[in-house]
Design a protein around this nucleic acid. Structure first.
Length: 880
RNA sequence: GGACGAUUAGCUCAGUUGGUUAGAGCGCUACAUUGACAUUGUAGAGGUCACAGGUUCGAAUCCUGUAUCGUCCACCA
């Protein structure tokens, strides 16, 4: 490092250049690396906009991991990509177009033109996202860049669809689905956001002569009721079960209401009877199916249409009305007929579309589904069982193929969830997405025909299904659909590690397990690391509507990428939410600068030519031995933390070593020690390994320093430090010296001694005579304000001195004592010691403690007590 | 309604199998003025670990319950 190097590190003048160097080096591409494969698939960000701080956190997590693994000598792959995010993107672009004055984009533009608009938008968004990923310093292999909607991924989607169809796992069925009127599309159960709202619960009868009272919050759907369900064990209704009543509530035709039984009806709730509307409730539809299977069918009457308005079946008074209008009208009618018995306010949770925002309707429709309960041919297990097995005992009961969820508590949530899994509706009526590979035609005998295949069928008259696939169908294959380069899948799958936020655990993780275990007969990843959400400083979610969004690029511009990365990684605990503070980033920036200056100092105080010479351990001082043992320990702990995904703990240990141990103690001491040559070698060795340990967290600054100081190969491809490179030196001598120095500083401060005032110290070192003598230079120079020092084994205590005791060592500071303040200080110390001694004595006098506690603990307590007792005695002597 | 978390210093948070006087950053107080770094240094104040029980020689840590907050799930019509 040359002398002109700036006093402060300026990220913006290095980062782009360094990233370019990394890219050009080829080390981002595992083809250029050797060793055991290690792979991470980047969860592809949606091309709905730009990246936010949450993405910055994810990029930091993935990159810290992949850099660590690369340095560990692995063939490391971090594969980047983006997600076309079907509904989300179309909804977004449609919204933009509406803002631009196009009232109904689908009608006005048509399929091809609208798709063109969406493609344009998504390409732009994609470009921005990729730039942002680079700005974060993410060391991913750009030669393998993937997109969920590009050709290789489309091929994979079609292949898997056809295979599942042929296995009978995908079926086309007429069922009640969630329908977003606003988006004119279905959505799956997992895409619903439940919102609490106020509603009215109406209790009524269909007619004067109807024997059972029912309750509902959706009176308008009652126009389509065809049954009343009661619990089979409910004695109140036994006599009515199986009977059918004809009622006229104003629908197009009088309703045939059959009294049926269902075990899920709770006797205690309301009247214990439930009006069954097969067309507009998933639960009721199930009853409809059950009745059909039993041979006692009930009718299905659809009274709400896809436009959210009442159908003709709802009757002349209702047809064409919005559901809310119809509701009022029906209630009016009930009142008029004196059928309404009760009207009460309740809070209700309703499902809304996560992308379009409207309350979804339940409508019966023909859609495509994935059957999660059907046995897979040749497997004897259902998809649900496959998913569960992979987390519970390992795929195919193979422990090597077990997915570990970290932190573990999310496994509980997973099992709870998997038991409630229902068939997955995968067809969407939007246009942006993978078109369903199914074709229809009517043959010469006027029978409908269907063809499902990877390529269009030959022959005339085939029309492809208009619908597209749920976006998770393609992103579920992400761990392997991305590995389409020859040999990649065998090399890198199952992937090694996957990080994700808990909010998409069930949306995404489960689908990846489903796809991978079914298609590849192996798990998608071995370890899942769940992180929490990043919130603003008030603890609120970042969102556009709140206007509290922060652009990572802004933060980077001001503080540098390293500072952003460190502040994010340092403040997260697995699975827990964290708040983002600019103060944190500022602190991180200061740390980066500290490391910069440490290196700057070291490079100025070591001779490059001596680096290869063997370090002469005979020249070691107490501080040398101390820092070397700290360093050895640091390497082992940081490595350990990485293996346990404890990133924030690793970074914290590095921070403490760097700032407290190295900068504040070791470098300060080094200034006053004589073994300059050895020191230079040691400093360089420690600096090198420290830069390596830091590199995954703060890649830019470490690479810049590395380049300035060592000029050799890139730190990116450096070898992770080994503890073996450090001798096992167990040494606590320097800790004692630190203690002596800190105590002197403290006593000066408490006595309010002027900083400039020089004082004399007399030390009775006892058995530490030799050590204290050898370290006297440090005791004098490290901000203790001592100019003269006298060291004896033992002696008569000097008068009028500040008295300090560090274990058996006695220190007297002459010429600085403030009678009153010293008295206060001594009293405080004595009180403190007495308190501690009392606690330990209490423990040791406790018969049960002595009998039952492990010997090591007891020994520790005894040693503690003995030390304190000596100190206390000395303090008492002096204060008399 | 169910499940899962959280509650530790003024603020934001660590605390890995129960064992020194419970830690850090920021903030605060007093001091230092450039010596690698003022994006700095030195010293200090500040906590009944939400509450109540229990297990244990010993609990922030394990168990039970309560309160408050948060998240997810759910077919109370």
């Amino acid at each position: 490092m040359s002398k002109e190097i700036a006093k402060t590190y300026e990220p913006s003048s290095h980062e782009d250049e360094i990233y370019k160097k990394w890219e050009e080096s080829g080390f981002f591409n595992p083809d250029n690396l050797t060793g055991e494969p290690y792979s991470i698939m980047m969860p592809p960000p949606n091309v709905t906009g730009v990246l936010h701080l949450g993405h910055a956190l994810e990029n930091s997590l993935m990159d810290v991991m992949i850099r660590y693994q690369r340095m560990r000598g692995k063939k490391a792959l971090l594969l980047p990509g983006t997600d076309h995010a079907a509904v989300a993107t179309q909804a977004k672009v449609e919204k933009l177009l509406i803002e631009q004055g196009i009232k109904n984009p689908r009608e006005e533009l048509g399929r091809e033109k609208l798709l063109e608009k969406i493609r344009e938008y998504s390409e732009q968004s994609k470009a921005t996202i990729l730039t942002q990923i680079k700005k974060m310093g993410t060391s991913c292999d750009w030669s393998r860049l993937a997109y969920t909607f590009d050709e290789p991924r489309n091929k994979a989607v079609n292949e898997v669809f056809v295979r599942m169809y042929n296995d009978g796992l995908i079926y086309r069925g007429y069922r009640v689905v969630n329908w977003s009127v606003k988006g004119q599309s279905t959505c799956s159960d997992d895409e619903l956001v439940h919102v609490e709202r106020q509603a009215k619960l109406y209790t009524f009868k269909y007619g004067k002569d109807f024997p059972i009272t029912i309750a509902t919050t959706r009176p308008e759907t009652k126009l389509g009721d065809t049954a009343v369900a009661v619990n089979p064990n409910d004695e109140r209704y036994q006599e009515y079960i199986g009977k059918t009543y004809v009622v006229d509530v104003g629908a197009a035709k009088p309703l045939n209401i059959k009294i049926i039984t269902d075990e899920n009806v709770e006797m205690a709730f309301g009247t214990g009877a439930l009006g069954v509307t097969p067309a507009h409730s998933a639960v009721d539809f199930e009853m409809y199916e059950k009745q059909k299977a039993k041979g006692e069918p009930i009718e299905l009457i659809q009274v709400i249409g896809q436009d959210g308005k009442m159908t003709a079946a709802a009757g002349g008074n209702y047809v064409g009305l919005k559901v809310t209008e119809a509701r009022e009208k029906f209630v009016e009618w009930l009142k008029g007929e004196d059928l309404l018995e009760k009207e009460e306010d309740i809070t209700q949770s309703v499902g809304t579309s996560d992308r379009f925002g409207d309350v979804v309707e339940s409508l019966p429709m023909t859609q495509w589904f994935v059957d999660v309960n059907k046995k897979i041919p040749g497997k004897g297990k259902s998809l649900r069982e496959l998913i569960k097995e992979a987390v519970e005992i390992g795929h195919n009961n193979n422990p090597e193929q077990k997915i570990n969820i970290n932190p573990e508590r999310f496994e509980k949530v997973f099992f709870h969830w998997i038991n409630n899994l229902r068939d997955w509706c995968i067809s969407r009526q939007i246009w942006w997405g993978h078109r369903i590979p199914a074709w229809y035609k009517v043959n010469s005998k006027f029978e409908p025909e269907i063809y499902v295949g990877e390529t269009p069928p030959s022959g005339e008259g085939w029309l492809q299904d208009e619908d597209t696939l749920d976006t998770w169908f393609s992103s579920g294959m992400w761990t392997f659909s991305t590995l389409n380069k020859s040999g990649d899948a065998e090399m890198f799958h199952p992937t090694s590690w996957m990080q994700m936020g808990y909010e998409i655990l069930f949306l995404w993780m489960v689908r990846m397990i489903l796809m991978s275990t079914y298609v590849r007969d192996e798990i998608p990843f071995k370890d899942v690391y769940i992180h929490g959400m990043l919130r603003d400083e008030k603890g609120e979610k970042f969102s556009k509507s709140k206007g509290n969004n922060i652009d990572p690029l802004e933060v980077i511009e001001k503080y540098g990428t390293d500072a952003l990365r460190f502040s994010l990684l340092n403040s997260i605990a697995p699975g827990n939410d964290a708040r983002f503070y600019f103060e944190k980033v500022e602190g991180a920036r200061n740390l980066v600068n500290k490391l910069w200056n440490i290196s700057r100092y070291i490079s100025g105080n070591s001779n490059q030519n001596e680096l290869d010479k063997e370090i002469d351990s005979k020249q070691f001082t107490a501080s040398d031995i101390w820092i070397l043992s700290k360093m050895k320990n640091l390497i082992s702990e940081v490595t350990d933390d990485f293996e346990k995904f404890q990133f924030s703990q690793a970074s914290e240990k590095l921070r403490i070593f760097t700032w407290d141990d190295l900068a504040d103690w070791y470098l300060e001491a080094a200034k006053f020690e004589d073994n300059k040559e050895t020191k230079g070698q040691l400093l360089t060795k420690i600096n090198k390994d420290l830069l390596k340990l830091w590199h995954p967290f703060i890649p830019f600054v470490t690479e810049v320093i590395w380049h300035e100081m060592f000029n050799g190969e890139l730190l990116l491809a450096g070898k992770w430090p080994k503890t073996d490179n450090y001798e096992s030196l167990k040494e606590e001598k320097f800790e004692l010296i630190k203690d002596v120095i800190t105590s002197i500083r403290n006593a000066r401060s408490e006595n309010k001694v002027e900083p400039a005032k020089k004082i004399k110290a007399v030390i009775f070192a006892g058995s530490h005579m030799e050590l204290i003598k050898s370290q006297s230079k440090l005791i004098i120079n490290l901000r203790t304000g001592i100019e003269e020092i006298e060291i004896l084994a033992k002696g008569d205590k000097p008068d009028n001195a500040i008295f300090i005791t560090v274990g058996e060592i006695e220190i007297y500071l002459l010429g600085a004592r403030d009678e009153a303040k010293e008295k206060i200080r001594l009293t405080k110390e004595i009180e403190n010691l007495e308190k501690q001694i009392k606690i330990v004595e209490g423990k040791l006098n406790n018969q049960e403690f002595v009998e039952r506690a492990p010997a090591a603990i007891i020994e520790k307590e005894k040693a503690k007590l003995a030390g304190w007792q000596i100190e206390l005695e000395k303090l008492k002597n002096i204060s008399e």
